[in-house]
C-alpha cells in the first residue's frame, strides 16, 4: 500500500511534470491525498486525466460565474483552483453550474476545501451523483464507484446555510433529559455553591 505522503509527493511531481506550476502542483498533491483519504478514486482519475491531457485540449476556466459552460471540457484543476481562490466572492451566488467539466472527481477536493474556507457545507451534484462536503472534514455521498469518471454534463454547487439538522422540539426533548443530571439547589447552596463573595458587586 502506498502511504498518503507518498501519494502527495508523487502527484505533486507528476503534476509539475505534465506542465502545471509548482504552486498548482502542490495543491493537486494535497487534493489527491484528500480524495484517497476520503475513499474516492483520486489517483486513478488523475492518472487517466494526465494520459488524456497529453493529446486532448481542455478549457481553462479562470473567472468563475453563476453559469459556466464550454464546448471544450473544462480542466478540473484550473477550474478547481479558481473556484477555491474566488470562493469568498462566489458564496453569495447560492448556486453555481458548470456544464461540461472533465474528470469531475478531481474537482471535488477544491470544493471540499472551499467549504472549510467559508465555513459552510456545500452540496455538489455531478449529474445524478450527490456529494455533501462537510467543512473538508468528511464527504457524504451516494457515489461509491472506484472507476474513472471522464466527464460530467452538469455540475451544480449549492452553498448550504449553517443551520441545525433538528427541530426546536427535538432539541427541547433531548435537553429535558440532560436536566436529569442537574441538582436542585437549596437557598443555602444558591448563596454559596458558586464560590462567590459576600456581595455580588465587590
Amino acid at each position: 500500500m502506498r502511504s498518503f505522503s507518498e501519494i502527495d509527493t508523487a502527484v505533486k511531481r507528476a503534476s509539475k511534470g505534465i506542465g502545471f506550476s509548482w504552486g498548482i502542483s502542490e495543491e493537486v498533491g494535497k487534493n489527491i491525498r484528500l480524495l484517497e483519504m476520503f475513499g474516492l478514486p483520486g489517483l486513478k482519475n488523475l492518472n487517466q486525466y494526465y494520459k488524456i491531457l497529453k493529446e486532448k485540449k481542455f478549457q481553462n476556466l479562470t473567472l468563475v460565474s453563476k453559469e459556466n459552460s464550454s464546448k471544450i471540457p473544462y480542466c478540473p484543476i484550473i477550474a478547481g483552483i479558481n473556484f477555491l481562490d474566488q470562493v469568498n466572492n462566489l458564496e453569495e451566488l447560492e448556486e453555481i453550474k458548470f456544464d461540461n467539466l472533465g474528470f469531475p472527481i478531481l474537482f471535488i477536493p477544491f470544493v471540499s476545501r472551499a467549504s472549510e474556507i467559508i465555513g459552510k457545507r456545500i452540496f455538489l451534484t455531478i449529474d445524478e451523483k450527490e456529494f455533501l462536503l462537510n467543512f473538508n472534514q468528511s464527504i457524504y455521498s451516494n457515489y461509491l464507484s472506484s472507476d474513472v469518471l471522464e466527464k460530467s454534463d452538469q455540475i451544480k454547487i449549492k452553498f448550504i446555510e449553517n443551520k441545525n439538522m433538528f427541530s426546536e422540539t427535538e432539541w427541547q426533548e433531548l435537553y429535558k433529559l440532560s436536566e436529569d443530571t442537574f441538582v436542585e439547589e437549596t437557598d443555602k447552596l444558591k448563596q454559596n455553591a458558586a464560590g462567590a463573595g459576600l456581595t455580588d458587586n465587590d
Binding site: 506550476s21 504552486g23 498548482i24 495543491e27 479562470t62 483552483i81 479558481n82 474566488q86
Partner: peptide, 17 residues
C-alpha cells in the same frame, strides 16, 4: 484580491503561499 492576482500569476503560487 490575491485570488484575482493568482489567475494570471499561478507560476508564483508557491511563493505567494
Amino acid at each position: 484580491k490575491i485570488g484575482k492576482f493568482l489567475i494570471e500569476n499561478n507560476d508564483l503560487r508557491h511563493v505567494v503561499r
